[in-house]
Design a protein around this nucleic acid. Structure first.
Lengths: 212, 212
DNA sequence: GTCTATAGTCGGATAGAC
DNA sequence: GTCTATCCGACTATAGAC
């Protein structure tokens, strides 16, 4: 009986990098931490990828591509269902959030951290490539679905939604600790329905208008 | 005429550290970057503070202490005004957010980054010392002001509010770029009224209940 | 493709003169 | 209190044997 085939080196590196980047961030994750966890030689990273930044890019790309594909699929389905009328904001939020939440527990933390929280030039490039086009597409849908809110105010409110989502992903687990046990320990994804209810109410609130 | 007196070394270090930690985060800021900007010798940092982590702590403490004092002052004023009745959530949000927004442009970015975005053990200790007690106090007020929402759901929604606030602080400026100029370039603080309107609506939404 | 070995850099922290 | 000089560890990246 042959030894169970380990995943190829390249995939083991990606798996380890995904977990460590998600947990500790880019700067605080060294290539040595990655190679140790992947049981791979240090030099293998620079052989398969060219640099630490290129590894980050590959890590994000592997996950973001199918998620974004699914997002557009769901959006199209909701739009077909609405038959020309604006889609309910709850459905737009669902189409945007469900694919990333269903991608497994580390993936959202990785993407959130990388795309919303970090600020280095690398991340700006990654954002432009992997999130910008999707955000554009969804923004337009949100603007159509919120006719009583000025477009710029919709954009600002969507920024708030992204922040609430990021916070949920990165520290919903901490609520159990902060509240000294009063809040149940539940996975971030279990909070999604609460996030959608909260966000939908905020998005639909009467606009302030004026300066935007 | 004497040369204009420079601030003491210790304060110059704190000023430089505040700016750099806010812009680049803790890991990406080296002591050498700080001493260069402060025009101070490298060894001065370890003389006045003991370590990089202790410097971070001092940087946060210098700003957080007066802000938290002001928050409690405003909260007490609103509670006195309400005369035993629950305070309007808009006022609670105002009492929590206004002091940090009035503290100058870098201060909120520093505190937000340190207390919400970073995850190292150092930051956990800083959070427990400088934000935990305030959050506790305000949570209770929010729970009283939202009698139709279960306490645990209030806590979760407050987490969303914190996330929206953090996102506004760290990337409201980017909206001008992302929208290719359609969104006006305005300071994060100018968005505060919009954040409060959004958050108040989200907080007051009908609760989902069930699993929390 | 995978390893060892190492170059080259930069980090935080400290010793000791002034 | 402030400086120079330096230690020592960790890092990314690469060269070159197998």
């Amino acid at each position: 009986m042959p030894t169970p085939p380990l995943p190829p080196t390249k995939d083991r590196i990606l798996d380890a990098a995904e977990l460590l980047f998600a947990d500790h961030g880019f700067d605080a994750t060294s290539l040595r931490m990655i190679t140790a966890r992947a049981s791979v030689n240090l030099a293998a990273v620079n052989y398969h990828f060219q640099s630490k930044e290129a590894l980050l890019d590959a890590t994000i790309a592997r996950r973001a591509t199918p998620i974004n594909h699914r997002r557009l699929e769901l959006l199209a389905a909701f739009e077909a269902e609405a038959d020309g009328k604006p889609v309910a904001v709850e459905n737009l939020l669902d189409a945007f959030l469900r694919p990333i939440l269903e991608a497994g527990s580390m993936v959202p933390r990785l993407i959130v951290r990388m795309l919303y929280l970090e600020q280095k030039p690398v991340f700006k490039r990654i954002f432009e490539r992997h999130l910008q086009p999707i955000v554009q597409r969804f923004s337009e849908a949100f603007v159509r679905s919120l006719p009583h809110v000025p477009p710029n105010e919709v954009m600002l409110r969507l920024l708030f939604v992204m922040g609430a989502f990021a916070q949920m992903m990165s520290s919903a687990g901490a609520l159990h600790v902060i509240t000294e046990g009063r809040f149940p320990a539940l996975e971030p994804a279990r909070c999604a329905a609460y996030l959608i209810a909260f966000s939908a109410a905020g998005l639909k609130a009467p606009p302030l208008g004026s300066t935007l």
